[in-house]
Design a protein around this nucleic acid. Structure first.
Lengths: 344, 344
DNA sequence: TTGAAAGCGCTAACAC
DNA sequence: GTGTTAGCGCTTTCAA
């Protein structure tokens, strides 16, 4: 059915080996005329090498495996697009697997990709990864024996490179912005425990440096969804705060919605800060102040790191941290004299 | 490095063939004890079959190729997630390629996927596809010789199945909604010419059926981006309209922004209708009335169609149209008595 | 300068 | 029941 290298060889009247040499641009000990004949024959038959055969014999597919929680999350979509751009330059494809943020599935995905002999794997672990899982990952990474880059999220001691965004610093920037505006009663809406740790410690750092107390009860649980931002709003609006730091933009959107419903004016009655810098934040009725994360760049850097390791194994184990950017828009302002949110 | 089937055979003291039989659950003519031994050996060595070898010999990889314009577009991200869900059930992976909505790249991607022996290809053509390209596609599809499903966008006479959303009907619904509210001066913000044709004819149909004239100048060019919605807003706000139908939600967001800046009140001064039903539409200051497209379901159906064709080639050439849904929210209302947009 | 031959790891048809 | 064998399409080494 498909045209094979043999077909080309037959048409050109040479051996398969010769065709392989020429078409792969190897140091050719083949006469220019033969070369030309081979090229013509290949073109005529529209020969395309079977990648699986190439992979089988070379032991490495020209594909990069990617494990992410969910492609519908804009952050990961951006990330993937960065990876793809780099892969494309090198003539590689990408194989994507989503874990629904479930560790077991993420690990299974990792193994599947390994079994496909992808040339490298970019791994964004699920947020519920624990020590048992870390051990399994270590094993799987060892078995795989090729470049693995941990992206965005950290499982300790995996022994592979890490490419991530400096979230702690970003969160600190955000909190400092709020504190500098004069806010003293700030609520935080967190994400899933495992993944929001760096952001939380950024917040704590900012408070500590300014000698401001951050109470346990100022920390509200969230799930990084609009729904969870909406759901937690009432409690916060009654908590006597002058500002809220939502640990991602989505939750801030949900928060906005509830504020709108209750007639709370942002930023007059309450300042709202986000985190992510998602596409839409600039198009809200009050453009959201947030911390922009270079998601696409993250994908680019992670892919580059993988290629670097491929060229030169000593490059493994590098840690790359990208800088997030504070984006101050219209949802934050100094606390108003008579803020509507009653004191507790 | 990696454990091979031979290693397992050696440990179990049997032949490679036997191991293959047992591990693949083939009608086993193998004694239960031997079976057990083989399984144990495989488990002990943590044997994982090399997928490339399997692919090479079976001639088909357990992977579905997907060609889309851009993964950062939420619509396609949803689509892909649907495909992935179906693929996962069958133990397949997906290989994603983005074309940046460029036809040449989309075609190249198609060929790359074919060369990888993916089991089937889901193709969302780029929006600038012309007849020359259609010919190349036909050729490539023939060479590929496996199931291809055209998704969401139509290239005529490709001779493959099509799974899409009934956009014409959706657009008609939207326009009817506007007309039923009493609007007579409606502006449309289009998308790239090739891709928005069905939506446009839905609009025309609705107008024709009600004997309402749709003038050429009521059609404004757009690019399906927020920026383009923002950019076109001024012209429309001065055009004496009482309603705008943006051919996607993104452009409506951009339109909102400009309205906000100019103090135009939606829907009092102007009704705005979107198309897509993107995640955020419900969280805008005035939740956007729109036409929801079942993007994820589209992916699910397309993948299922591919699997069906794989099982039974006669299934090829089927056309599946999914129904979009009118979602009326708060951005549309009857035209106000004294609308602010001056007449032309 | 070129052809022949040996695998890569696996499946499937065929002997034993 | 189980082992042996012949490839899948390609790269690469070694002879010629």
């Amino acid at each position: 059915m498909a045209v094979t290298l043999r077909d080309v060889a037959r048409l050109a009247g040479v051996s398969p080996g010769a065709v392989s040499q020429v078409l792969n641009g190897k140091p050719h000990r083949i006469s220019p005329e033969t070369c030309e004949q081979i090229r013509q024959a290949a073109a005529q038959l529209r020969y395309v090498p079977n990648q699986n055969a190439v992979t089988l014999v070379t032991g490495q597919s020209q594909a990069m495996g990617v494990v992410i929680p969910d492609i519908r999350n804009l952050f990961f979509a951006e990330l993937v697009s960065g990876v793809e751009a780099v892969a494309l330059e090198a003539g590689w494809n990408i194989v994507i697997t989503s874990s629904s943020d479930k560790s077991a599935l993420a690990l299974a995905n990792f193994r599947t990709l390994a079994a496909r002999d992808v040339g490298a794997i970019l791994l964004v672990p699920a947020s519920d990864a624990d020590e048992t899982l870390a051990m399994e990952y270590r094993q799987a990474i060892r078995d795989y024996g090729r470049p693995v880059v941990q992206v965005d999220r950290i499982i300790p001691d995996l022994g592979v490179s890490l490419t991530a965004i400096h979230q702690r610093r970003g969160a600190k920037l955000a909190m400092e912005h709020l504190l500098d505006l004069g806010h003293r009663r700030v609520a935080c809406v967190l994400g899933p425990t495992n993944t929001c740790a760096p952001r939380l410690s950024g917040v704590q750092e900012a408070c500590a440096q300014r000698g401001i107390a951050l109470r346990e009860r100022d920390l509200y649980p969230g799930a990084y969804t609009m729904e969870s931002g909406y759901a937690v709003a009432d409690a916060i609006l009654e908590g006597g705060y002058t500002a809220v730091f939502c640990f991602n933009d989505m939750m801030a959107y949900g928060f906005y919605k509830r504020c709108r419903e209750r007639g709370i004016s942002i930023p007059h009655d309450l300042s709202v800060m986000g985190f992510d810098g998602v596409l839409f934040s600039d198009y809200l009725e009050k453009p959201l102040s947030t911390v922009w994360q270079p998601a696409r760049q993250l994908g680019v850097e992670a892919a580059r790191q993988a290629f670097r390791e491929l060229e030169c194994p000593e490059e493994a184990g590098k840690c790359t941290l990208l800088e997030p950017q504070l984006q101050i828009r219209e949802s934050t302002a100094p606390p108003a004299a008579g803020a509507v949110c009653q004191e507790t």
